[in-house]
Amino acid sequence: MEEWRFIDFGLVDIRDMMAMDEAILKGDEGNTFFFWTPKKSIILGYFQKADIELNLAHCKDYTITRRISGGGIAFSDDRCRQINYGVVGVIDNDRFALDIIESYKQICGVLIDTLIDYGLNAAFRPINDVIVDNKKISGNAQTRWEGKLLQNGTLLLDFDIEEMLRISNIPKEKFMDKKIASVREGLTWLDRELGEQIDMEEIRNVMKRKFEERFNVRLKPGTLSKKEKELTKSLLPKYYSDEWTYL
């Protein structure tokens, strides 16, 4: 069976993680699936301006950076109860489709299979969301580079909606077309859906297994290559700079 690399980066500073993320996409180590847990932070989508999207006066104790993919803010609080993943894959029109929405659907399928395993009514909502009973439980963002794709996403296990509303400037229009009255009704998280806290490592293991089944591969634990580490080092100043973050 084909083997793809697997890395668990553990608890990380998002600026370091975004540099590693880009290095894996632009490196040459083949298809890779990885997890990380962000420290208290906000990651802006590539086209988002910090002073428009965030209430910066309320963000002072957050680490903020921007990523190379579009989409909206990814926010994580002190509790760290969210699973963040990344996939880097060669677009082969088999396992990773050329069609953007199809490729989202394929990768989001790993999350959906995981949630179904826990008995939840999970589904894909184009373009890039996973929902449970019409409530968003996972946001995902993809970029592409030289025939490869990088998709990042988050599965919410616990989430502080009030804090997200405090730090951001999300207008009511954001949710108007989704037939829900407000952000409060539009989001959910695993702990709420299940009524109990499942161990994060257990959920990650289910995700890994579902990934292997969906892509028909075996995940082999690995690390960053020397070249990826060098690339990461060269990318770090960007992710730590105000010029990059405050576009």
Partner: peptide, 15 residues
């Protein structure tokens, strides 16, 4: 002109 948003656009630099 300045635009901010949570849309997706490829290739990103073309934006």
């Amino acid at each position: 002109i300045s635009i901010s948003g949570d849309f997706f656009l490829f290739p990103e630099d073309a934006f």
